[in-house]
Design a protein around this nucleic acid. Structure first.
Length: 136
DNA sequence: GCCAACGTTGGC
DNA sequence: GCCAACGTTGGC
C-alpha cells in the first residue's frame, strides 16, 4: 500500500465536497510529474488531502478506489490521467504547512520541496509522522 | 501585492 | 537547441 498527497484549492473543491459526494473523479491534473504519480496509484492506496490557499493544511484522507484511467476531460490526443477517490475521514487535527516545514523528519516531503506539485508520493516514514501529528 | 519556482511558447 | 517572455501556482 502506498501513500499519496493531493492538493486542492478548497474554494473550488474541498474535502467537504468529496465527503458530500462520497466518491469522485480526481481529474484535471495537467503536470507531467503529477501525472506520473497518478500512474503509479493502486486500488486501496491512501491519499492525504491538502487544502492550499488560505488554509494550507492537510485535512483528511481519501482512498484510491480504481486503477488510473485516461482523464475524460483531456483534449483529444493528450494523455492525462485520472483516478477515483473515496472520502475516508477527516484528520483528528489538521496538519498545518508551517508545522510540516518545521519538522526535521519532513524536510524531504515533496510538499515542502516542490511547492507547485499538485499530486505527489509520500514515503511510509513520512506518512507515519504526518499521521502522528494529526493525532497528537 | 509580491515573488520564487516551474512550465510553455515562440523567435532566433 | 537556446533563451527571453510570459503564464500559473501557491506561499509569504
Amino acid at each position: 500500500m502506498n501513500y499519496w498527497l493531493v492538493k486542492t484549492e478548497p474554494e473550488s473543491y474541498s474535502l467537504e465536497d468529496l465527503e458530500r459526494k462520497g466518491e469522485d473523479v480526481w481529474d484535471g491534473v495537467r503536470n507531467h510529474q503529477a501525472r506520473n504519480f497518478i500512474a503509479k496509484m493502486n486500488l486501496g492506496d491512501l491519499v492525504f488531502v491538502y487544502h492550499s490557499g488560505k488554509h494550507k493544511a492537510l485535512v483528511g484522507m481519501a482512498k484510491v478506489i480504481c486503477a488510473p484511467y485516461p482523464d475524460p476531460k483531456a483534449e483529444e490526443g493528450e494523455k492525462w490521467l485520472a483516478v477515483d477517490l473515496r472520502f475516508e475521514k477527516y484528520l483528528p487535527k489538521p496538519v498545518h504547512l508551517a508545522d510540516i516545514k518545521s519538522s526535521d523528519s519532513l524536510q524531504d516531503l515533496l510538499l515542502v520541496r516542490q511547492s507547485r506539485l499538485s499530486v505527489m508520493s509520500v514515503e511510509p516514514s513520512e506518512a507515519e509522522v504526518l499521521l502522528k501529528m494529526a493525532n497528537s
